[in-house]
Write a protein that binds this DNA or RNA. Structure first.
Lengths: 262, 262
DNA sequence: GAGTGGTCTAGACCACTGT
DNA sequence: CAGTGGTCTAGACCACTCC
């Protein structure tokens, strides 16, 4: 004896999978569906809520429910780090041509729009522990939002932290008007004599906060993927920590691990 | 003019964060809460539904709503691959001592329970493309479920694929009664003369299917994290593909990328 | 059996979107 | 303004858990 709203959801799911309802197509109005399935409106809405949480439909207030189109994935590949390192010492003209994000996504610079904000913040406990500095140490916080130029919501939000007194050696690094910086963070660090030895990335997923739901334009049961990147220089010191927040339904992370030979 | 169920959710959220309601503690009954907040039961249930989707509470039918305890994370580190490779040629007694999962989780073999199923399946389009073999090629599918011995639901489900005719060189590899195999897949491959060169891991997150919700014991807005691991041998051939499905709220993936020196 | 959350109804009214 | 989804009510009955 299955629950009614599950049975209805099953039937709708099947109609979607069978292609009877095509991606992007509007579903009948909820009142019409309730009549069609001989149930009450709230129950029909429960059934649609299930499909929403499974990412099968989008709801648009005042417009209708739509079969969700498969998302274009944004890829991020850990080979980007070596690639960026190789370019960190290249001439500016070469660095300007392409950034790591364009490399990952296969898009050109003109497809992307990019917004950066700089501010100064004291290290909280978490960041202090990562950097190995006292709580309250002055950090530079840089927030980046990257969009496809033709899409409303950003496909990631990056919060990058540097120790203020370390990067102050080059005042340009404190100047947001220099963004986007050709060659990225590794080139910025190169200007103050820092070479990276390795990058540690920690990936987790969690339900979005209400702010993230709005900022990233999320719907339904979609989670956010959070990547914390820690950059370590050749002396073993942590020189950058950054948190990348991405919509779980549009993100694909690739990591290649090369093994020593026998 | 905020919606009522959001205002109620806000207040409950605050009571939880303030510690007035402690992790693990039962909330008042829904009918009692509805009375307390002077609203109807369905509206109160909408508010609780919000908290559920944010992962703040757990619902237990017939028992009550509880403030969710912070989850113990299961870690998976890409250093496990080199570690496993180093042990692939070790003596059996050493291999038996610990496996890669124990290494990742910090648990001992006796904390973990382990279930394996083998079967033979024809390659679908996706797998055929990965292995570079014709669709329909015989594959060995091995399904693993790993539990904390004291917890109901597994913390991951692994589907691992090998090309049947390649691994048949050692009949033991087709015999599920040999599980758990000391030393893992890399040792298994070593017995048929295969050495791995690199491992590519692709990470995505998506809403769980209904089956996954049950199998992994998920609640609320929790997503599943799916990791597709592709193992490539020293001749550049794909020798294993495996899909690891993990609950997003209990999983932490660590990837370290080492960079070449200037 | 008592108490809890789960499902469902029938209907009212509000808020958003497009024409 | 017409049509859509969003919020909310008051109450009935079912299903699960625990004592």
């Amino acid at each position: 004896m299955a629950k009614q709203y599950e049975r209805i959801a099953d039937q709708l799911r099947q109609r979607i999978r069978a292609g009877e309802l095509e991606p992007g197509q509007r579903l009948p109005a909820e009142t019409a569906l309730a009549k069609e399935y001989k149930t009450s409106l709230p129950t029909m809405r429960d059934a649609l809520g299930l499909l929403l949480s499974e990412g099968l439909i989008d709801k648009k207030h005042g417009v209708g429910n739509f079969v969700r189109k498969p998302r274009k994935l944004v890829r991020r590949d850990n080979a980007r780090h070596q690639w960026e390192k190789d370019r960190a010492r290249a001439a500016e003209t070469e660095r300007q041509a392409t950034g790591a994000t364009e490399r990952d996504t296969g898009l050109t610079i003109s497809d992307l729009s990019f917004h950066a904000t700089y501010s100064e913040v004291p290290a909280d406990e978490d960041l202090a522990a990562h950097f190995g500095v006292p709580v309250g140490t002055r950090l530079v916080e840089r927030v980046y939002r990257t969009n496809h130029r033709e899409e409303a919501s950003p496909f990631n939000i990056v919060r990058s932290y540097l120790v203020h007194d370390v990067v102050a050696a080059n005042p340009d690094l404190l100047d947001p008007s220099k963004e986007p910086w050709p060659g990225g963070t590794q080139n910025q660090l190169h200007t103050i004599g820092i070479e990276l030895d390795r990058i540690v990335e920690r990936v987790t997923a969690r339900p979005p906060t209400v702010e993230e739901t709005e900022e990233l334009g999320l719907q339904g049961g979609v989670a956010v993927v959070v990547l914390r990147k820690t950059s370590i220089d050749t002396s073993g010191r942590v020189v950058e920590v950054s948190d990348v927040t991405m919509p779980g339904d549009r993100t694909e992370l690739i990591f290649t691990t090369t093994l020593d030979r026998w």
